[in-house]
């Protein structure tokens, strides 16, 4: 073996098997331990990357140059008042239904976890019913509700009524849409919330009880904030489903984003594709905004659960720039 003894020593325990292919390598000028390790070359990875880049470029090129998409018409429609009015209705319906659905979900989850068998059963049946019936059926049912019940009253069954609504006035299209979506949303949200509440360790409940914290405080300050950590990603999933689910309100004659695209499309049949692209772009934007909010909400509720918080995108960019600058400085110095 022509390897210098000093090299072998600095390696620590070089086995003969490792040392054999290095016979012809000239002895390095400095001890091996101080050498930078050259990363393994992976040509396969480069080939795959190139192929994927070509495919991506092709798709992008097709999107831009294919006359089928009529990007000039897209531009024309994108900020049209009819489209923006529809967008506003989509947003309104989404926000109302998301808030009412989550509140309903929390109540249903609490009922489902309560010691009372009646509350548990009611919650279970509600969830079972509204997860079984398609949203569109619920919406159409509600839409025809005024025909089924002329007045709606709250009170003792067969007895006196405390509150009476005149159906035809109550049931505006917006109310039908929001009520329908909220009823549906609450059923799913209840399972999301229940899952989150169950994920909180039993020891947390015990510690809170042992300290004698009032029941309401236990829920609001100890259990629910911890449950939110696992509720958030699941509920955002639900929320994105809801944003797209609002497109069904078109069938209860409410002109949301999808509805206005549909009606414009039937008036201008030649613009169907750019109009669908407009709707796609707006739904993408809404979903992106929700995803960004989700990141920060999750980051907030992971305080204490993680030893170090994940960096925000801004922090990532900053540290990336810092690293790059440091590398450049090192290279120029060398």
């Amino acid at each position: 073996m022509s390897q210098p003894p000093g090299t072998a020593l600095s390696l620590g325990a070089a086995t003969p098997a490792e040392a054999v292919p290095r016979i012809d390598v000239p002895a390095p000028p400095e001890p091996l331990a101080a050498q930078r390790v050259l990363p393994l070359r992976r040509p396969g990875r480069w080939i795959v990357t190139a192929v994927v880049l070509v495919l991506v470029a092709q798709t992008a090129h097709g999107l831009v140059t294919n006359p089928f998409y009529q990007w000039d018409r897209f531009q024309y429609w994108f900020l049209r008042p009819t489209i923006l009015d529809g967008l506003l209705i989509t947003l309104e319906v989404t926000v109302y239904s998301a808030v009412l659905g989550l509140l309903g979900g929390i109540l249903l989850a609490l009922a489902r976890l309560s010691p009372s068998p009646v509350l548990r059963a009611v919650s279970w049946v509600y969830t079972w019913l509204f997860r079984s019936v398609p949203l569109i059926v619920v919406l159409l049912f509600l839409y025809n509700f005024s025909a089924l019940y002329q007045t709606l009253s709250v009170g003792v069954p067969f007895g006196p009524a405390f509150l009476t609504f005149d159906e035809s006035r109550l049931a505006t299209d917006m109310a039908v849409a929001v009520v329908g979506l909220s009823l549906n949303e609450a059923a799913y949200a209840s399972e999301v919330v229940r899952g989150g509440l169950l994920s909180v360790d039993q020891g947390q409940h015990e510690a809170a009880s042992a300290l004698g914290l009032p029941k309401r405080y236990q829920f609001a300050r100890i259990v629910f904030p911890q449950a939110l950590r696992s509720i958030t990603p699941n509920y955002v999933n639900q929320l994105i489903g809801l944003i797209k689910g609002t497109s069904l309100v078109f069938y209860v004659s409410l002109l949301d984003l999808f509805g206005s695209v549909q009606s414009m499309g039937s008036t201008y049949p030649g613009d169907i594709v750019p109009l669908l692209l407009v709707a796609t772009a707006w739904y993408l934007i809404l979903t992106s905004v929700v995803s960004v909010v989700q990141f920060y909400v999750e980051r907030y509720y992971s305080r204490g659960a993680l030893r170090t918080l994940p960096p925000t995108p801004l922090q990532k960019v900053r540290s990336g720039l810092r690293d790059a600058r440091a590398r450049v400085r090192k290279e120029t110095a060398a």
């Binding site: 360790d201 020891g203 947390q204 015990e206 510690a207 809170a208 009880s209 042992a210 300290l211 004698g212 914290l213 009032p214 029941k215 100890i222 904030p225 911890q226 509720y301 305080r303 204490g304 659960a305």
Partner: peptide
């Protein structure tokens, strides 16, 4: 009632095997 029991518990300290600290609070 639960409320009175909780008030009574606040006069009894309890230290758990698994600490059961609230992880989301400092």
């Amino acid at each position: 009632s639960e409320r009175i029991i909780l008030a009574q518990r606040s006069r009894i300290g309890f230290v758990f095997q698994n600490f059961n600290l609230f992880p989301h609070l400092t």
